[in-house]
Amino acid sequence: MEYSTVKVAVVQAAPVLFNKQSAMDKIASASREAAEQGAKLIVFPEVFVPGYPRGLSFGARVGSRTTDGRKDWERYWASAIEIPGAETQLLGELAKELGVYLVIGVVERDQEFSRGTLYNAIVYIGPDGELLGKHRKLVPTGSERLLWGQGDGSTLTVMETPFGRIGGLICWENYMPLARTALYAQGIDIYIAPTADARDTWQSTIRHIACEGRCFVISCNQFATKASYPDDLAYYEDIKNDPDILSSGGSAIVGPLGEYVAQPLMNQEGILIATLDLRQIAQSRFDFDAVGHYSRPDIFQLTVNDKKQRIVKNV
């Protein structure tokens, strides 16, 4: 590490759902606000672009789908981004202007094969404006599986920065012990966990990961209300009787011994700012290192397939 400390920012907000431009505008304004406060790493929630469609059914039931539901989904598909693409180019220009690392949850539209599949992804942009990498969620949770495809081991991304190695997993794939181990084995120092989970149990999860991985954990959720949903959706009725606050947030930053560096932010939009003392990472691994002196490779071994999976291979 070149730095002993780094200031980070966690943006808890929500765009207008299905509105890519709304998300991009919020990223620009929040990033500028965070950078003005000295943040060098700025994190946005799970699928911030173009939003998490909590509560929507898209007309899907076991054994059937509807025409109107397909139209809602096509609207979601149209608001997704490509990686790389026009939006990542704009994000790169923003990151370069501000001299920051941007980590943003997005819905990625596949551009390599059929263009018909979406992925829940994290995109990483460097302060030089370059696209550093991405991670695709390995297993979408529950009904998410109808919206997003499954990622593969080629995007279990951890990358070097002047303030340590950064990477992460999305929401409930953080409950996958072997996926976490794959990141620990790459020496992750700052573990980023965008989520859509605002429950108390999520706080237990991120504190456990910090203590298990002896790393900083940055968790980022959306604060979303019904006002962020376009009311002309075919299945807007799905959320009509839900509470006005659809996601109450809970974004937080946890240190490598499991203590809060920034307490959970609840029931409001906001930006958490914290200075991380990176020396605490080495200090915390004095008595526990999950993939180092506390591992037993003579008993336990993990094999990770990090090859990109293709349905058609040219030989």
Rank of each mutant, 00 (worst) to 15 (best):
N221K: 00
R54S: 04
G149Y: 15
G59Y: 07
V315S: 10
C220G: 02
Y260G: 01
L265C: 02
A80R: 05
L302N: 08
D298G: 14
R136T: 01
P140T: 03
A196L: 10
L276D: 02
A274G: 09
R180M: 12
E259T: 11
I170F: 13
V16W: 12
A193L: 06
A252I: 13
V47C: 10
S114E: 13
A80T: 01
S4H: 06
K40N: 13
F300V: 00
I218S: 02
E269T: 15
C215R: 04
R199P: 08
A196V: 03
T67D: 01
G164N: 02
W148M: 05
I188C: 01
E269W: 13
K26C: 01
Q21N: 03
K313T: 14
L132C: 03
V106N: 08
G55V: 05
P15Y: 10
F48V: 14
V62M: 11
D231W: 14
R285S: 01
V304C: 15
N305C: 04
G167S: 05
S29Y: 07
A182V: 08
V16R: 14
E2D: 08
L102P: 03
D152H: 15
T181Y: 15
A252L: 12
R32T: 03
K313G: 12
P127V: 07
S22G: 00
P84W: 09
I209P: 00
W73D: 03
R54M: 04
A121F: 12
A234L: 08
I311E: 06
V43G: 14
E160I: 13
D200S: 08
K226A: 07
I27F: 02
D72R: 11
T225K: 06
L90C: 03
G38H: 02
M1E: 06
R115P: 02
L41F: 10
P230D: 04
G168D: 00
Q37R: 10
P256R: 05
F18Q: 12
Y235K: 15
F223G: 05
L156C: 10
Y3P: 01
Y101I: 09
I104T: 05
R214S: 01
D238I: 10
K134E: 14
E144Y: 14
V123M: 04
A86Q: 11
E108V: 11
G250N: 03
A182P: 02
G99D: 03
E259C: 07
S57H: 08
P45C: 13
T275G: 04
N314S: 03
L102S: 09
D298P: 09
E259Y: 11
I83D: 01
A28K: 13
C215D: 00
S295L: 13
Y124A: 03
I104L: 14
N174I: 06
K96S: 07
V158P: 04
T67M: 01
V47R: 09
M266K: 14
T117F: 15
A234M: 07
R214C: 06
V16H: 10
V217G: 00
K26F: 07
R279S: 01
A28H: 09
S154G: 04
L98C: 06
Y52R: 05
A28R: 09
Y124N: 04
C211A: 07
V8C: 03
L98R: 08
E160D: 13
A30N: 09
T117Q: 15
V6H: 02
K40G: 08
I81N: 02
R75C: 09
I271Y: 12
K308E: 09
Q150I: 05
D287L: 14
T157G: 10
D25K: 09
V16D: 12
A13M: 02
Q89S: 13
G255D: 02
E160Y: 15
I188W: 00
